[in-house]
Design a binder for these strands. Structure first.
Lengths: 204, 204
DNA sequence: CAAGTTTTTTACCATTTGGTAAAGTTACGA
DNA sequence: TCGTAACTTTACCAAATGGTAAAAAACTTG
């Protein structure tokens, strides 16, 4: 996309990473339209035309970010293993999601922004990448339920609720910080609550 | 703000409503910066300077929307009554939140956008309006728990999880539509799932 | 170290966008 | 029905913004 078709140099790899890192924070908090090239340039100590040297356009940065992070973002779901203990597999997935909310709130908000706005740049990716994975993992969960290992319920809605609750802590942090001050205890309280909640829901 | 201090005329009331209605949809899906005055003008069949006649600036429209809708948005939480049956009060609240997600997805997304971006225009309002209400209702829930009417857990996190799950259906609809096609059955399935889930969590 | 290639910087441009000035039109009370 | 105040429209502007051209600088390699 950016260069015809050549192996990227060291400087290229480095600087694209710098750009992505700066853009991630800005897109996550101001959205695509709310972020300017000048802001990105500023945040990574480059000049605007230099960005365009590495990425064809502002949109190209955004798209690259979404694509790059998508895989990483979905890996915990993929890691849920049909052979493991059902309850512990799902709880393990929830723990990893909570951890990601804490460690990578920018990524969470980037996706939140994109989806809230109708996923204009990600719909095809959702169809082609997320959907098959989602259906597969729903199938695994459904089987666990049929085997009586966990309580029966709609697998898709179960996953939605896991996403909703775990990502809420990253996406709505501004609100949570107002309502539940005291940063230190919050994360542990959240982890404990969410695990307790889903254990209770999933226990047959 | 807009006019010194006079009772609004019929035309004024009408047109401000038209502007708010158009702006609500646009701000909800494109965010504040992603929405232009021209788009709003177009959407409500007015000309740009006419908007500025009714609202001092684009930001004034946004702020008015947030303030106008905040109260309405929080009313279900306020309606949770300490004298009622604890489990049914909370389930009733959840039902109302699900209904609002279905009937007013634009409002939900407007707030989601605002909070994800750090609530730049709403933080004071959260402090002054939401926080007291939140603390009060947390207190009611805590008492219900102490009395053994519902299972014990952290009331604040319980409310967060209710918000997360119910609003998820409005805010992430684009994703849900891809993963769970078939519009008609979805809403009922969601309602049933969410009610089942929280009943299970809350039952002592 | 010289020639060529990659990267950075400066100067610039066209379009978009939030907003204004002021003339024109409509509604409405006396 | 007439005058005035409320409302609408046209024409316009300054700043911001995404992006380009091309020269300058730095790096790579024979």
């Amino acid at each position: 996309m950016t260069s015809p078709a050549r192996k990227p140099s060291r400087i290229q790899t480095e600087n694209r990473q710098r750009i992505r890192d700066a853009a991630l924070g800005l897109f996550a908090t101001h959205g695509f339209r709310g972020t300017t090239l000048d802001q990105i340039a500023d945040a990574c100590g480059m000049h605007k035309p230099n960005l365009i040297y590495y990425y064809d356009s502002k949109e190209a940065i955004h798209i690259d970010l979404l694509n790059t992070l998508m895989e990483e973002w979905l890996s915990p779901l993929d890691a849920m293993n049909a052979e493991g203990d059902p309850l512990e597999e799902i709880i393990g997935y929830i723990r990893r999601k909570m951890e990601m909310s804490r460690l990578y709130p920018r990524e969470s908000r980037l996706f939140a922004n994109e989806i809230v706005q109708g996923a204009p740049r990600m719909l095809p990716h959702l169809e082609s990448t997320l959907k098959p994975l989602f259906d597969r993992q729903c199938g695994i969960i459904a089987k666990w339920m049929k085997d009586g290992k966990i309580a029966e319920m709609h697998p898709a809605h179960l996953i939605f609720s896991i996403w909703a609750v775990t990502q809420h802590y990253a996406d709505f942090e501004a609100q949570i910080a107002v309502l539940l001050p005291g940063d230190d205890k919050r994360a542990r309280g959240a982890d404990q609550f969410v695990e307790m909640m889903f254990r209770k829901v999933l226990t047959p």
